[in-house]
Amino acid sequence: MRRVKKYFTASTWRGFLSLMVFVALWQLVIFLKVPYLERLPYPADVATEGAKAVQSSGYWYNWKVSMIRIFTGFAVAQIIGIPLGLAIGLSRVFRGFTFPIFEMLRPIPPIAWIPLAILFWPTRELSIYFLVFLGSFFIIVINVIQGVGNIPVSLKWAATSLGARRKDIFWRILVPGSLPSIVVGMTVGMGVTWEVLIAAEMIAGKGGLGRATWEAYTNSAFPSIIVGMLSIGLAGYLCSALIRKISDMFMPWKRKF
């Protein structure tokens, strides 16, 4: 009983209502033949198309392909980026050698790497992994550097007074101290990664949600375009939710009480 009550709060109803109004407006726009929007499909058509899609294996195959690309590129970016960020944040010498190159490459939007990535990597698939990697790599590195810098010196001092050695300071102070920034870097990076993935798929991909949406466009299948867009939105949302979940697991002290 309690659970039911919790789900149907005033804000749930408000959300539901706003969704209904949105769909109604959508319907109205088509009905009134608003200029330039007259080819918009009816909500009902999109819903039918969506229902058809979720029953086909091709649709779920595209989900799988996109997810594998996202997680491979993203994971490699974290595995290389987090230690690199820690190293740049901790060692002035290392920072001196690496940071200028890093700062030179960072402002280049990942999408601008597409031509070079296609030429450079032996397969299209690898070039997509690489682009996804770039989408989250620079962001995680920058955030880790800042995270290390923001740890108050008093925490390090307190730890040394309490008898911590260099190794302890690293694992017990610097790593947990920069975790909040790592999570921020991952969250932002995940968003950018989806943008990059979709662009890369549309240009160079075989399969994937971005490609499917693009193919719907080349076939002028309007309802399918919108189903594709909504799927991409949902996929991005699920990935961000996953990161939030993981961050709660690793940072119990940051949970909202």
């Binding site: 008093s154 001092w157 307190a158 040394t160 008898g163 102070i173 947990p176 002290w253």
Partner: peptide, 20 residues
């Protein structure tokens, strides 16, 4: 000589480890 356990400091802005 380095900081050590014989001289403990309680800091102005507090230095408890937030993750503990």
């Amino acid at each position: 000589i380095k900081p050590d356990v014989d001289r403990m400091v309680v800091f102005q802005n507090g230095a408890l480890f937030p993750w503990k």
